[in-house]
């Protein structure tokens, strides 16, 4: 009898103990989600409050209809601008254009160069000198040699590429970084038989790469492009340091905080401005959510 009770007790304890890990992590995840969503909700709520209402009641909903101020968005939109020189000011659409040029160009060229380099290294490794290029990949990815910010500024100035979009494309389209590793994994998984069939049909190496092999990895190209695009879209340090004449929206968000214009000096309008700046990439994310989520792995990455 006692033995049966003990067994039953052990079984119950075993059942409970099996649940401790998932339940506790799930609860922690819920807590994080609630905290993040609450912060976001607070920001959105603040952005549509009047100044007076905000200072009287900074946390909850306005107590009266006069407490709402949707025109915060109009005022914020009008004041998102950066003075590049004494005479030139870049407004919201200029910042948006710069963001697009900076993020699209850099993302496209960096994924393109990485895709070509990884294709050659994955499929032509029987050529001795091609195989000998592997140390470049290892050094680029695993040696913590980082050129200092000051040295980069000097280098770009010496090459006449400082504050130039084209120079920035050239600088950041390095082929052997992390994008290379991700693309390399997908080339490795793709059969060389397709290329061999193309060669038999008379296609050259270039045509085979462009017309046969590349179309088969267009999904991974798209996903890597989107990931790079989002990272670059949110990058504010590079435009701030190396492209002062091409401020982007993220840089704009930072500058907007220091705007001395009285119209946007209040927290409510600053929050509205931040939300306007965050909107384009959020819309993009919602459009490509399914594509982005679930397409990416980093298999076969071991160097």
């Amino acid at each position: 009898m006692e033995n049966r009770e003990m067994k039953k007790g052990y079984s119950v304890w075993r059942k409970i103990s099996r649940k401790i890990f998932p339940v506790s992590v799930w609860a922690l995840l819920c807590l994080w989600t609630v905290a993040f969503l609450f912060m976001l909700f607070w920001g959105i709520l603040t952005s549509v409050k009047s100044d007076v209402e905000f200072y009287l009641n900074p946390t909850w909903f306005p107590s009266s209809a006069s407490g709402w101020a949707f025109n915060n968005y109009i005022l914020a939109f009008q004041n998102i601008k950066i003075s590049v020189t004494a005479t030139k000011t870049v407004g919201f659409f200029g910042l948006l254009g710069n963001s697009l040029l900076y993020a699209c160009g850099n993302a496209f060229f960096s994924v393109l160069t990485a895709s070509i380099a990884s294709y050659i290294l994955a499929k032509y490794k029987y050529i001795r000198w091609v195989n000998a290029l592997w140390p470049i990949v290892l050094i680029t990815n695993y040696m913590p040699l980082s050129v200092s910010m000051a040295a980069n500024i000097k280098l770009l100035n010496d090459l006449g590429l400082y504050d130039s979009l084209l120079g920035n494309y050239l600088w950041s389209c390095g082929a052997f970084g992390s994008v290379f590793l991700m693309y390399y994994a997908s080339w490795k998984g793709l059969s060389w038989g397709y290329a061999e069939a193309a060669f038999i049909d008379g296609a050259g190496h270039c045509r085979t790469m462009v017309q046969i092999m590349f179309p088969m990895t267009r999904t991974i190209f798209g996903v890597l492009f989107l990931m790079q695009f989002i990272t670059l879209w949110n990058d504010y340090m590079t435009p701030l340091i190396y492209l002062p004449s091409y401020p982007n929206l993220s840089y704009g968000a930072w500058m907007f905080q220091y705007s001395t214009n009285y119209e946007v000096a209040d927290v409510t309008r600053k929050m509205a401005g931040l939300l306007i700046i965050a909107l384009p990439v959020f819309v993009l994310f919602m459009c490509f959510k399914e594509k982005l989520m679930g397409s990416l792995t980093i298999g076969g990455l071991k160097g």
Partner: peptide, 18 residues
């Protein structure tokens, strides 16, 4: 997705005021 700049500033204002 959202710029780290925007998230950091949201955090700052949330902590300071909210």
């Amino acid at each position: 997705i959202i710029s780290s700049m925007v998230v950091a500033l949201f955090f700052r204002y949330f902590v300071e005021y909210g």
